[in-house]
Write a protein that binds this DNA or RNA. Structure first.
Length: 425
RNA sequence: GGAGAGUUGGCAGAGUGGUCGAAUGCGGCGGUCUCGAAAACCGUUGUCGUCGUAAGACGAUCGGAGGUUCAAAUCCUCCACUCUCCGCCA
C-alpha cells in the first residue's frame, strides 16, 4: 500500500498512476474520508487527554483518601462522549483502511503508458529453431512420449491439472534442481523451502488480498490459502520485523508448487500445460535498500535470463506497460520463451520491483546504521523460472524428427547423463 | 483432538482495577575516570499516529479482536501462538 500521508501530499501523482493503469478509483472520496478521520481523531484525542487527566486526579484523591464521587460523575460524562466519537472514528478508519488497500502501486516513470499492446520488447536472445519437419505441439508430444497424462490428472482432481509420468516427472525434478543450483551456487541466493499454505495476513502483506481473493484456493475451516507463488511465504518471512542495514541485500530462492484458481479465465489457453491450476516454480525474492532496488531488478532479470540461456531457449524480455503491470508492482519485466510447436511466446517469468509497497503492507523495515531512522525495505521477486510452460518450450524446441526430444545439455547431469526423451516404457 | 500453564519494552523479568508507558537486571547509546581499555559511577534508551515551520504538545500501544467498568497490562469472552502431559500419526 501507499503511505496515506504520501497520497495526501501527492494526489496528482496518485491520480496519474490510476489513470495510467486505467483504473477507476475515486481518490477524492478517499481524501475526504481521510480529512474526516483526522477531524474526528483530533477531537477524540483531546477528549482522551481530558479523560486521562481526570483519571489521574481520581488516583490522587484515592491516595489522599478523599472523596472521589464528584470526579467520577464528571469523568463518566467525558467517557460517554469519548466512546460515541470513538465509535464513529473507528467506522471511518475501517472504511479508509479498506480503501487504501485497493490503491495500486505507482508505475515507474520508465514504463510505456497504455495497455498490453504497448509492452516494450527491450531485448531478445537466441534464434528461432529451424525444423526440417513440421514441429509438433507439446500436447501431441506429451501424448506420444507418454510423459504427461492430462486425462488422468483430470480424473484425479479436475481439468487443468498435471500428472507427470516417468521421464516427464524426472524432467520436472531435474529442472527444479538445476535452477536452484544455479541461483544458489552462482547468483548468491539462499535456498528456502517455505510452507505452501499461508494465512490471511501474509496474503495481504504481499498484495494478493483483498483484491484477488476469488483467484485463490482457500481452506475455509482454517482461513488459510494455497500459495499462488512462493513470493507470498518468502516475502512474509520478515513481516513485522526490523532488519539490520548490513544484512541487506537478502537474496532468497525457493522451489514451491503454485496454486491458482484462474477464475474467469475459462476458455483461454485451456488445453495443455499453458494455464494450469497447479504448477512448479523456482522463485527469487530480494530484500534490498531503496536506493539500489532498480539495479537489483536488472540483476534479477539477468539471473532469470541465465536459466533460459543455459537451457538454450529462445526468449524475449518485455517491459510491461502501465496497464499490464500487476497491482503491487512499480516496474516489471516478463520473460517470454518461444514455443515453435504452437508458435507462441510463453510467459515463463515475471520480475518485479515493488519498491516499498509490499514492505509497507507487511511492515518490513530496516535500521540505517548510525541513525535511529527506520526505513521500509524494497522488495523484489521474479520467477526463475515457472515450470509447466518451460517444459512446453523445451519439448517443442528440442523435438526431433523421430518424435523424441533432445535433453538440453545443462539438464543432463540431473538426468543421469540421459540425452534424449524417448517413449516412456 | 483432550487437559493444563503461558504470551509484558532489544533480551530477561516484576507488576492482579486508579499518579503504570510500565519496577529491576542485562544489552545499546552518551559522559566522568584512564595514556588507552576494562571496571565503577552518572545520564539516556521502543514503535506508530495527530497537531505544529519548528521546539514541542497530545494520543495510541503490555499476543490479536471484542466486552465489563467512571477507570483495564490487571477482570470476562473468542481467536492465534508457545510450553508440558495424554491421544493420534508421516
Amino acid at each position: 500500500m501507499l503511505d496515506l500521508r504520501f497520497i495526501r501530499e501527492n494526489q496528482d501523482l496518485v491520480k496519474k498512476a490510476l489513470k495510467d493503469r486505467n483504473l477507476k478509483l475515486d481518490l477524492d472520496d478517499i481524501m475526504r474520508l481521510d480529512e474526516e478521520r483526522r477531524n474526528y481523531l483530533s477531537e477524540v484525542e483531546s477528549l482522551r487527554s481530558e479523560k486521562n487527566k481526570a483519571n489521574d486526579e481520581i488516583g490522587a484523591l484515592l491516595k489522599a483518601k478523599k472523596d472521589t464521587k464528584e470526579k467520577i460523575v464528571s469523568m463518566k460524562a467525558i467517557s460517554e462522549k469519548t466512546g460515541e466519537l470513538e465509535d464513529k472514528l473507528s467506522l471511518i478508519e475501517k472504511e479508509l483502511d479498506q480503501k487504501i488497500l485497493t490503491i495500486p502501486n505507482i508505475p515507474h516513470s520508465s514504463l510505456p503508458v497504455g495497455d498490453a499492446s504497448n509492452n516494450k520488447i527491450v531485448r531478445s536472445w537466441g534464434e528461432e529453431k529451424k525444423f526440417d519437419f513440421k514441429p509438433l505441439s507439446h500436447t501431441e508430444l506429451i501424448q506420444s512420449l507418454d510423459i504427461i497424462d492430462l486425462p488422468r490428472a483430470t480424473k484425479i482432481t479436475g481439468s487443468n491439472f498435471i500428472l507427470y509420468k516417468g521421464l516427464g516427472a524426472k524432467l520436472e525434478r531435474a529442472l527444479i534442481n538445476f535452477m536452484l543450483d544455479l541461483h544458489t551456487k552462482k547468483h548468491g541466493y539462499t535456498e528456502v523451502s517455505p510452507p505452501f499454505l499461508v494465512n490471511r495476513a501474509s496474503m495481504i502483506g504481499t498484495g494478493q488480498l483483498p483484491k484477488l481473493e476469488e483467484d485463490m484456493y482457500r481452506l475455509k475451516d482454517d482461513d488459510l490459502f494455497l500459495i499462488p507463488t512462493a513470493e507470498v511465504p518468502v516475502t512474509n518471512i520478515f513481516r513485522d520485523e526490523v532488519l539490520e542495514e548490513k544484512a541487506l541485500p537478502i537474496y532468497y530462492t525457493a522451489y514451491t508448487a503454485c496454486f491458482r484458481r484462474e477464475a474467469g479465465s475459462y476458455g483461454k489457453d485451456t488445453k495443455g500445460l499453458i494455464r494450469v491450476h497447479q504448477f512448479d516454480k523456482v522463485e527469487m525474492v530480494k530484500f534490498v535498500k531503496p536506493e539500489s532496488s532498480y539495479d537489483e531488478l536488472e540483476k534479477l532479470v539477468a539471473d532469470a535470463e541465465e536459466i533460459l540461456q543455459a537451457l538454450g531457449l529462445q526468449y524475449r524480455v518485455a517491459m510491461l506497460s502501465t496497464q499490464d503491470l500487476s497491482f503491487a508492482a512499480s516496474k516489471c519485466y516478463d520473460l517470454e520463451a518461444y514455443a515453435p510447436g504452437i508458435g507462441k511466446w510463453l510467459e515463463v517469468s515475471s520480475c518485479s520491483n515493488f519498491e516499498s509497497f509490499q514492505a509497507r503492507r507487511a511492515n518490513i523495515k530496516f535500521k540505517r546504521e548510525g541513525t535511529k531512522k527506520l526505513d521500509f525495505v524494497h522488495t523484489l521477486n521474479g520467477s526463475g523460472v515457472a515450470l509447466a510452460r518451460t517444459v512446453v518450450a523445451i519439448l517443442e524446441n528440442y523435438q526431433q524428427k523421430d518424435g523424441t526430444v533432445l535433453i538440453p545439455e545443462a539438464l543432463r547431469p540431473y538426468l543421469d547423463g540421459l540425452r534424449t526423451i524417448t517413449v516412456n516404457p
